[in-house]
């Protein structure tokens, strides 16, 4: 018996000897879009976390099954899938991008290994059809009049607060948002990969509002796309020729106009 044959037999034995308990502690969690919010006519990133309490599992298959009911099972061939390795007693995060229409039909994400389904989870979340989706990274922009200004400017909109840590690292995952507002105090918590995804999303047509000049000073992540290079802070008081009734000064970013057009 040569070495090659030995290796083959050994591999087969491993498959046969993996006991049921080896898969006992595997579970998956699925978060579509931006913490659940997505658009049903755009690609949706399913953020999938896999928890494994047992030994390592190699070549497990994650797949999105279009319909759980047998009525349409012939069309439920898994088109969206990926192979993952599960760490022993560990947690991994991965993603699969699917069409928003499919996500809105609440498909099932299944994890399969050794011919058995280890766990499954139905894709939930909120599908937004035509409304503007405004994502606020930070609480402050939501507390002032900005949402109402947005409603007047863009019509009815859906607003979602997102902590900086939950910002995706992939511009496609940001497709659910029409407008992203970044709070100045939260901007330093945005990681370089997240900032890059936002810049790419802007290049693809996204509307970015840098509240108080968030991240737009020299060397900061949005300085290279911001029309104004922020150089400092100022405030604006007065009643603006009757446009304001309050007299409390508003803090503003001060800076130099560096690109784009001003009207």
């Amino acid at each position: 018996m040569n070495l090659k044959r030995l290796v083959l037999i050994f591999t087969a034995a491993i498959f046969l000897l993996v006991p049921n308990w080896a898969f006992a502690g595997v579970s998956i969690q699925v978060k579509p879009g931006l913490n659940g919010l997505y658009k049903n006519h755009k690609p949706v990133q399913l953020n999938i976390a896999v928890y494994n309490d047992g030994p390592a599992v190699k070549d497990a298959l994650l797949r999105v099954v279009a319909d759980r009911d047998k009525a349409r099972s012939s069309s439920s061939r898994a088109v969206y899938q990926r192979v993952i390795d599960l760490l022993p007693k560990g947690r991994i995060e991965t993603f699969i991008i699917i069409p928003g229409e499919l996500a809105a039909d609440q498909p099932e994400v299944q994890l399969i290994a050794g011919g058995r389904m280890l766990d499954s989870a139905v894709v939930q979340g909120m599908a937004v059809k035509e409304d503007y989706v405004v994502v606020s990274v930070g609480e402050k922009p939501l507390a002032n009049g900005l949402p109402y200004w947005l409603e007047n400017s863009f019509g009815y909109n859906t607003i979602k607060y997102l902590p900086p840590a939950d910002l995706p690292r992939n511009p496609i995952a940001l497709a659910a948002a029409d407008v992203i507002i970044i709070d100045k105090e939260r901007a330093p918590q945005i990681q370089p990969e997240q900032a890059k995804a936002i810049r790419q999303w802007v290049a693809l047509g996204g509307n970015l509002i840098l509240s108080g000049g968030a991240g737009a000073a020299e060397g900061e992540p949005f300085a290279i796309i911001s029309p104004v290079l922020v150089t400092g802070n100022t405030s604006l008081g007065g009643n603006w020729n009757g446009m304001r009734t309050e007299s409390i000064p508003i803090p503003l970013a001060d800076g130099k106009f560096v690109r784009g057009k001003s009207y």
Binding site: Q29, K31, N35, G36, L37, A49, Q124, G125, M126, K160, P163, A165, D166
Partner: peptide, 8 residues
Amino acid sequence: VLTFMPDG
């Protein structure tokens, strides 16, 4: 579930 907490 409409929206999720950061921990899922």
